[in-house]
Design a binder for these strands. Structure first.
Lengths: 213, 213
DNA sequence: GTCTATACTTCGATAGAC
DNA sequence: GTCTATCGAAGTATAGAC
């Protein structure tokens, strides 16, 4: 309660518009394009308001990340009720917007300690929750299968490389990797692995594809 | 032959120093820190020399990427002679410096078309070569095993997520994933999967851990 | 909460002397 | 090949009126 600055609790429309603008810029032009002037211009707001709401650009980044992180953790919780948690998990990690933002934030984290700490804490929570869901879903997995923690790493890594490749136009081997994942999901969720199936039965909490994976 | 600018063929010490400085800055502080002034300062050179050698900052990025890319492709070629090509392949993709630079370049590629085209072309070549080596190494693989192209994607994705996780201090599930890879390598290369083995028999062409994965 | 005005820094890029 | 000098644009951040 030291600095009298409106926090994430304040449901200000301007604050939200600034965060939206920052997210757009980060997606379209990378984290370096997120400057006070450009964010304000895109949000049709005055540049000084960025300082009013966030204090520094670093804090703006943190606020943006937190908003997406919390939304994503909520969506992850919702997955528990899904009929196909494994597939829903895979699709949550495969959203282009979300994954592209994640890459930007990871690059940012490499040289901004505050961002690094925030990402680190978030990913610990995300992976743990992911592991819990996998554990509950794969009740009959053989003893030779990877542990939930290892599966969480596999899902993160494979979904991320596919999305990064897509952004570069790389496609070689992709179809086969997707089939591999689909086959794995089918074996443990016992459902025919057709893409039309996924399209026909939308999962809960998939409305706002935003934030880190 | 239009603009009289020294190319990568010119073995200028200054040019190399500028590229080294750019690589350092990119690693330590991200691509946004790569500015003409800062690069020149770190290389103990005059800022105007950046324009003399590269013309624009974009060209500097491209030259830096190309240098690392070519070095990496050479190292990949050398792997063919390795006693354990599969493990060597894995380790080549797991180098922290190289992978961190790759993440920066991928983030850069998201909004710089010239960088994007360069990365795209490079990765196509890299993955293809990776696939060729895998094909030659895994001569006795079962028909159910993933194709070389898919394996190349798996290796890229898993090595990259482990390195990115390491940078954030995440370790959950890592040991198991490494064991998985090691087990796979052992099964197809027929060697006891001890880490001391890898340390005891260094592979050729691993002198300069630089450039994209 | 929103605005103007401003101080100060750093950026990319160029012209031209040496 | 290397340097100085310089332009205009854009960056962060703050003070203070409304």
């Amino acid at each position: 309660m030291s600095a009298a600055r409106p926090g994430s609790g304040s449901a200000s429309a301007t604050r939200g518009a600034l965060l939206d603008a920052a997210a757009q810029l980060m997606l379209e032009e990378g984290y370096a394009a997120v400057t006070t002037r450009r964010v304000a211009a895109r949000a049709d707001a005055n540049p000084a308001l960025v300082y009013y709401y966030f204090g520094t650009v670093d804090e703006l980044f943190l606020a943006l990340f937190r908003r997406g992180a919390e939304a994503n953790l909520r969506r992850l919780e919702d997955l528990r009720q899904s009929a196909h948690p494994l597939r829903a998990l895979w699709e949550l990690s495969s959203e282009p917007h979300s994954a592209a933002l994640t890459v930007e934030f990871i690059a940012l984290a490499h040289h901004r300690p505050a961002v690094r700490a925030e990402l680190s804490a978030y990913f610990v929570r995300f992976r743990r929750l992911q592991g819990d869901i996998l554990e509950a879903t794969l009740v009959h997995r053989p003893s030779t299968a990877p542990s939930p923690a290892a599966l969480a790493v596999l899902i993160s890594g494979l979904s991320r490389v596919l999305v990064m490749d897509d952004a570069l136009g790389l496609t070689s081997g992709h179809a086969e990797v997707r089939e591999l994942i689909d086959g794995f999901a089918a074996r443990f969720e016992g459902v025919t692995p057709t893409t039309s199936d996924a399209a026909a039965s939308p999962e809960p909490g998939r409305a706002d594809p935003d934030g880190p994976d």
